[in-house]
Each structure stands twice: as C-alpha cells, then as structure tokens.
Amino acid sequence: MYNRLRMAAIIFALSLTGIQTTTAYAASVTLVPSSAAVNVSNAFTINLNMDTADVAAETPAAHPGSYAGSVIIDFDPALVTYSGSMSGITAGTIGSMQTISFDFSGAPDVGTVRALDFTAVGTVGNTINFGLTDADDFFGSFTSQLPTNTPFTPSFTGVDVQIIPLPAAGWLMLSGLGAIGFRVRRHRYS
C-alpha cells in the first residue's frame, strides 16, 4: 500500500511539473488469482499477467517479442504468506507490509509472466489486498527488447482475495460422515 501511495504521489508530482510520464500505449500488467475467495489455511495461486499487444502493434518484430520488467507485490503478512519458489524472488518489507519482488526478461507480449503461490492465514471475513507496482518508481522498468530496447509504461492493477468459511454442505457432509462413523463403532461393540 505504501508503494502504491508513493508511486501515485510521484506520478502526480511529475504531471504537475509537465514531465511526460507515459507513452500512448495501453499496455497492462495485472495480478489474477486462481480464485477470488479462499478458505482459511488454503493455498492458492496468483498469476502476474502482461498484455503489451498495443506496444507490439507499434514495434516491428515485437510479436511475440521479448519484454522485460521488474515488479513489487505487497501484502499483509497477517492474512497471507508467500509459499512459492524463492528462485529470483527478493523478499522484504515496507512498513507493516510484506513484499516480494522479481525481475523478468524475455516474456511474450501477451500471457502469464510468473505464477506465485500463497497460503491464506487470516480469519474468515478478512480481505487480502495484493498491491502491484513497478520496481523502478521513477523511470519505470518495462522495456520492449526487440528489435531495440524501447521503454514503455504500462498500467498496474492489483487484486483482492476474500477469506471465506467452509460452505454449509461441507459442514453437513462432515457431520454425516461423523454420524456414520459413530454408528459403525457402536455396531462393532454391540
């Protein structure tokens, strides 16, 4: 959250000073969860997806192309923990928020850049907020690498995930199974 506020403040300041902060491209980088709601203690996946088709349309030999960038994902460690591979991952903190950051290169213009595994550790009713920002909060880090290196500034969109209780059918099934087990046990002893 702190990163997003800082980025917004910088962009606002740059816009006030007349500095051009973005190209005309509509490239986007988004976090997409495997499910919008998870149960307590359940694992789930969040994909980092990128769509730079607009950049590819402007750049020769950019489809599928080769794209590079660096992102920071922040979340509340009281609600969720990162449980995926640490290869290329740098963990850190910003205030009370946990962060993971990584670089990527050679990614195609459209698709999933990386899948990230998490486990919900909060309580039922909590909302896990995943923030997403460019790791370079001043120049930006995203580049189309073919045929030449051309920086571009995509939009960044995080995601929220709800922690929900087990459904009623689940509780009924568990109680039914318990009842069956109890009767089997009584029948044996009798």
């Binding site: 910088i10 300041a13 000073t17 001043f138 120049f139 580049t143 290196n149 920086p151």
Partner: peptide, 15 residues
C-alpha cells in the same frame, strides 16, 4: 552500445 538512457532527480521531479 545503443538504445535508451535517462537521468533525473527525484527531489525536483525533473528528468
């Protein structure tokens, strides 16, 4: 070498 360069100052928001 070829391609992109940038230089700026975060305090003055100039680049």
């Amino acid at each position: 070498a070829a391609d992109a360069w940038a230089h700026g100052n975060t305090a003055t928001s100039t680049a």
